[in-house]
C-alpha cells in the first residue's frame, strides 16, 4: 500500500493486517501448520474409522430391519450378550487385585533404596514380553504336568494336579502376571509423589503407622488409585490372546473381544462385529465413568509432592 492511496482503498487493507494480528493474539498463527500432519493423522486413522465403524454397526444386514438390528441381535443372543458378563467377571477381579495388591508394595517401596531400579526392571519384563508370550509360558508352567503342579504335589499340598489351564484361572493368572507390574509401576509413581513430610508431621502428632496410612496416604492416593484402576481395567477388559490360548474361547472365556473378532474374521460380518466393538467401548467407558464418579467422593487436591 503506497502512502498516497485513497482512504477508500486503504480501509480494506487495514482490517486484514489487524485481523491477522487479532488472530495471533488468540494464538492462531502460522506455526499451527505444524499441527496439520498430526491432525490429518488422527482424523484419518482414528476418527474416521470410528465413525465408519459406528455407521457400519447401524447398517442392518440382509434380512434384518431397523438401524439397531445389530445391537438387538447382540442382546437377544445369549451366547453373545453373555460375553459382557464373562469379560467383566475376568477383568474386574483381576484389576481390583492388581490395583489393591500394588498399594502395600508401592507404599513400602516409595522411598529411595538400593536395588529399586533392579526391582522395577524385573517388573517391566512381563510387560515387555507381552501377553502372547506370557500365555505360552503359563500353558507350560501351569499345565497338568507343569512345574507348578509338580511342585505342589511334591510338597503334598495337593494330591491331584490342579486344573489351571484352558479355564478361568489360566486367563486370570495371565492377567495378573502382565497386569500387576503395570498397576504397580503406576501406583509407585503416585506414592512417590506424596510429600513424605505430611506423614512425618502426623507422626509427630502421635499418629500410629496405620492411622498415618488411613488418614494421610490413602486419601492422597485415591485419585491415583482411580486412574490406575481405569488404565489397568482398559488392558484387562480387552483380554484377547490370553483368553484364546489359556481359556476356553468358545465357552466360559468367550470374552467380548473374541466375539467381535470371530464375527469380523470368521463370519466376515463386519456390521455385527462393529456393533460388538461399539458395545465393548461403551461398557468400558461406563466402568471408567463409575470409577471416576466414586473417586469424586474422596479428597481432591494437591498431594504436595514432586510427582502427580
Amino acid at each position: 500500500m503506497s502512502a498516497g492511496a485513497l482512504p477508500a482503498t486503504a480501509v480494506p487493507a487495514e482490517p486484514r493486517g489487524a485481523w491477522r494480528h487479532r488472530m495471533a493474539d488468540r494464538g492462531i498463527d502460522r506455526t499451527l501448520w505444524l499441527l496439520l500432519p498430526a491432525v490429518i493423522f488422527v482424523v484419518a486413522l482414528f476418527v474416521y474409522p470410528f465413525l465408519y465403524g459406528l455407521s457400519l454397526s447401524l447398517t442392518p444386514n440382509a434380512g434384518d430391519t431397523g438401524i439397531f438390528s445389530n445391537y438387538a441381535k447382540f442382546f437377544a443372543d445369549s451366547y453373545y450378550s453373555s460375553t459382557i458378563w464373562l469379560t467383566l467377571r475376568l477383568a474386574i477381579p483381576a484389576t481390583l487385585f492388581n490395583t489393591l495388591a500394588s498399594v502395600p508394595f508401592a507404599y513400602w517401596m516409595r522411598g529411595r533404596f538400593p536395588g529399586k531400579r533392579a526391582v522395577t526392571t524385573m517388573l517391566v519384563v512381563p510387560i515387555t514380553l507381552g501377553t502372547v508370550l506370557t500365555a505360552e509360558g503359563l500353558l507350560n508352567f501351569l499345565g497338568n504336568a507343569g512345574w507348578l503342579n509338580r511342585f505342589l504335589m511334591l510338597i503334598h499340598v495337593i494330591d491331584a494336579p490342579l486344573k489351571l489351564t484352558y479355564n478361568y484361572w489360566g486367563v486370570f493368572l495371565s492377567l495378573i502376571l502382565s497386569g500387576f507390574p503395570f498397576a504397580f509401576l503406576l501406583i509407585l509413581s503416585y506414592t512417590s509423589g506424596i510429600d513424605p513430610t505430611l506423614e512425618r508431621a502426623a507422626s509427630t502428632l502421635g499418629a500410629s503407622p496405620w492411622q498415618r496410612f488411613m488418614r494421610i496416604t490413602l486419601p492422597l492416593l485415591a485419585p491415583g488409585l482411580a486412574t490406575t484402576f481405569s488404565l489397568a481395567f482398559v488392558m484387562a477388559f480387552s483380554v484377547f490372546p490370553s483368553a484364546m490360548m489359556l481359556g476356553n474361547p468358545h465357552g466360559e472365556e468367550h470374552v467380548i473381544a473374541i466375539a467381535a473378532y470371530e464375527q469380523a474374521y470368521t463370519y466376515y460380518n463386519y456390521n455385527y462385529a462393529s456393533a460388538i466393538a461399539m458395545v465393548m467401548g461403551a461398557v468400558e467407558l461406563l466402568v471408567i465413568a463409575a470409577v471416576q464418579a466414586l473417586r469424586r467422593t474422596f479428597y481432591i487436591g494437591t498431594t504436595g509432592g514432586k510427582g502427580a
Binding site: F46, A264, Y270, A277
Partner: peptide, 25 residues
C-alpha cells in the same frame, strides 16, 4: 479438544478401535 483426540487412541484398547480400523483399511 485436540489434546483429548490425541489421548483417546491410548486410552481405548486396541481391539475396540482395531476392528473398525481394519475394516476401513
Amino acid at each position: 479438544l485436540l489434546n483429548l483426540l490425541f489421548l483417546l487412541p491410548i486410552m481405548v484398547p486396541p481391539i475396540t478401535y482395531g476392528i473398525p480400523l481394519a475394516t476401513a483399511l
